[in-house]
């Protein structure tokens, strides 16, 4: 068992080092330590699952060791900047003031094709409109266009708008969420009144009902009762 534990710790550190050395491209959407844990845990669990001759502890101890190591690394990453840079790396600015930073791209082994693919997915086709494009530590590309190329906000246009509310689910698939009803500041009487307004006999006939802070109600009957949807 102590061998399983020691090997787990050694392999975990080695794989993280390997993933870090591979660079941001391979990491995808996860941080290196997260990627390693997801890769390893599934395999570790599968081994004693398939081979009944292996003690269950052979899978459990490495899994707990991995989870403990991940927790330790994530707390250290949070508390210590240098450790964070060691584990996750630093974001790289690949486009600055509309110009490609070729050295940064080479350093990250990031090709022009990959850059343009990411820009297209973000709806940007003109490099000259981009102030910064940053290759993040999780492999994602953040694009910050010039202010003049961004759509104006209602504040900039001096247009008064009403704040939208956060909808709270009151009824979901025929089940009344009592706690949400109280949280939204309403009671059963109010709910019954809303149901009567829509000719609905009971919450069990409702597929979805939400209310937001402005009092706007979204209502959808269960399909076997007809396709009635409205929002008041």
């Amino acid at each position: 068992m102590v061998i399983a534990l020691t090997r787990t710790i050694i392999l975990y550190i080695l794989i993280i080092a390997g993933v870090r050395l591979m660079g941001k491209r391979q990491v995808g959407e996860l941080e290196p330590s997260e990627l390693v844990v997801s890769l390893l845990i599934a395999d570790l669990a599968a081994v004693p699952m398939q081979d009944f001759g292996i003690p269950l502890l052979t899978g459990i101890i490495p899994i707990f060791a991995l989870l403990s190591m991940t927790m330790i690394f994530s707390v250290l990453t949070m508390k210590n900047t240098r450790f964070r840079i060691l584990m996750c790396g630093k974001p790289s600015i690949v486009v600055r003031d509309g110009t490609l930073d070729q050295r940064e791209m080479q350093r990250n082994r990031y090709t022009v094709d990959e850059l343009f693919e990411e820009l297209r997915m973000k709806g940007c086709t003109d490099l000259t409109q981009i102030k910064y494009a940053i290759l993040e530590t999780n492999g994602q590309l953040s694009v910050l266009p010039y202010a003049a190329c961004q759509p104006p906000t209602t504040a900039q246009l001096e247009i008064k708008t009403q704040e939208g509310g956060l909808p709270v689910i009151l009824i979901s698939d025929g089940r009344l969420m009592e706690e949400n009803l109280h949280v939204s500041g309403h009671d059963r009487n109010w709910l019954d009144k809303q149901l009567r307004k829509r000719n609905c006999p009971s919450p069990a006939d409702v597929f979805l009902m939400t209310v937001d802070e402005t009092g706007k109600v979204y209502f959808s009957l269960r399909q076997e009762h007809g396709n009635k949807e409205d929002s008041l």
Binding site: V2, A4, A65, S68, M71, I72
Partner: peptide, 17 residues
């Protein structure tokens, strides 16, 4: 959480040894 994780790891090391 750090101390809990360290404790678990050390406990496992101690018990396996």
């Amino acid at each position: 959480r750090l101390w809990i994780a360290v404790t678990i790891l050390l406990a496992m090391l101690g018990s396996t040894l």
